[in-house]
Amino acid sequence: MENKLIVSLSPHVHGGDSVQKNMYGVCIALLPAMLASFYFFGMGAVAVMLTSVLSCVFFEWAITKFILKRNRLTILDGSAALTGVLLAFNLPSNLPLWIIVLGALFAIGVGKMTFGGLGQNIFNPALAGRVFLLISFPVQMTTWPVSGEMSYLDAQTAATPLSIMQTAISSGDASVLNQLPSSLEMLIGQTGGSMGEVSALLLLLGCAFMLWKKIITWHIPVSIIATVLVFAGLLHLANPVYANPLQVVFSGGLMLGACYMATDYVTSPMSHKGQLIYGVCIGLLTVIIRNWGAYPEGMSFAIIIMNAFTPLINTYCKPTRFGEVVKKEVAK
């Protein structure tokens, strides 16, 4: 035989899924929300997005090539680009560009590559970058332009729904909440905030796309949103200074966090049981931080905290083994 046969162990076929498909799938899912943010925030948003994506990809390339000295180029697998998109979604659209570059450096350099690259990091790189910026540049990071203003830098700034909610709690005056936009407005996206936080509806649309493409499973987003609805609802019933649960769910980065950040493959638990626990804890932490913490937004902190618990959840939350139920019944 001229051609040598190839031998390998089974299975001999593959489903055709790949890292690229998943990463770019998430990017496609984020596209509608991205376009919406461009529409609402104008050129500023475009500049922030481009800077963030390009610098993330550049840093990944530079670190792999010059510091880790690996020959395999990983920038095409889409993970760095995705980190860039998610980082940009977490930033106000009038942020100075050099801060964004710094955030990208932290996200990729410290959040991802120090751990060994894709698959090894403990914390979601985009969130690590955001939290780093939030702590280092609190003023710039919490000055949001009003949506619909098509200008950059000199845009007017206004209070976001989240800060209104926190003011209501700290002042104990429920009437402050009347300044909030209606839940419907918040769903569609007429609010100030970070770039990716404007339109909960489009984010949900992207989430549905990811579920349809089987990029993610329902467990994490549903458990987070349900927990927030229930917990915030109970608080609202107990004391009306706490906002309406629907407004809580549609405000701030909750949708973005629940559908795109918490579901990050690398930093979320592996078993469905573990994913539910993870989601519920994120939901609880988010509401707690939003209502009683120093920062108006608790989503990113909640996810980062639960990222740290993921290895522990993985150790103790095993999937149900085949035949396990039977064994327990017999033991009884």
Partner: peptide
């Protein structure tokens, strides 16, 4: 020949798809 070759392996991204696919409820990645 094309079908026969495996695609080059990349690092595990911990997507948990193997855990979801395992009919025995195991964690193949682990």
């Amino acid at each position: 020949d094309k079908e026969a070759r495996r695609t080059e392996a990349e690092p595990c991204i911990r997507c948990a798809k193997c855990v979801g696919a395992c009919p025995m409820g195991l964690e193949p990645y682990l």
